[in-house]
Amino acid sequence: MSEAQLRRPPKRRLPVEWLGILPFVAFAMLFLIMPTMKIVIGAFQSPEGGFTLQNLIDLNTDSIRSAYWTSIKLSLITALLGCAAGFAMASAVVFGGLPKRVRSPLLTFSGVASNFAGVPLAFAFIATLGPAGLVTLWLKTEFGINLRAMGFNLLSFWGLVVTYLFFQIPLMILIIIPALDGLKREWREAAEVLGATGAQYWRMVALPILFPSILGTFALLFANSFGAVATAFALTGPQLNIVPIKLFAQIRGDVLGNPNLGYALAFGMIVITGLANVTYIVLRTRSERWLK
């Protein structure tokens, strides 16, 4: 290579090639980044347009605090239960000696169920666990068990938890089954022949290997339920005090009586799902040093 070639600025060809993703970048800017930035900026703007922290400070009311807290609790619990139950079912199918025939239907069903969210899911649960639902009536007439009297109400926090699990569990199954398949038989056997018990194998080998996948799914499930509006709205209407419902009502009718407070509310949602994912990324990079 001659010196002249070497000295030629390497940047010159770049712009042409970057043009190829211009449509994508434009789309992402217009319909993903800028709308989000609008919210973020709006959260720090006074009605007159100046910079302020007042909106964020105004979030600190009992009602909004409790909405965030309920939302976080809801998301953590459904993500946790979803991961646990999904993991149990997936490992039952992969390691539990269940017939091979159940595997493919389970995966197909999980694909369907994880997408069967929103309004119709709420209807399905109302028809099952609602006041006149199938299971509710059946328990009452056959066993004399009155769910309502026992404190269970579908249109409440725990009702929402049960309903969300219908899409959370399958999502976990879909993601974790391939990860479980990735556990090599040799690892288990090597551990065993070296004297490890089944529990030691799981604790020292299998779970550390699965940890990044489980963690990633947990973060996904968390965000999934944190931002969900439709199921909760169709189930409980606008009453239930969780952040997405509150924001929904605010966007529709400015129930907070302050448009900029809406921005702050939405900004809080971004911060929380963002934090969840940053935590995930940090934990993941720490647990994944052994990956290529």
Partner: peptide, 28 residues
């Protein structure tokens, strides 16, 4: 033993997923 737990987990899961489907169909 493992198999027992596996079946239990699996069948409980199936029950959880089937009931709402049966419920909505029956109700409809």
């Amino acid at each position: 033993m493992t198999r027992f737990f596996a079946w239990t987990a699996f069948l409980l899961g199936v029950l959880f997923f089937v009931l709402p489907l049966v419920g909505m169909t029956e109700f409809s």
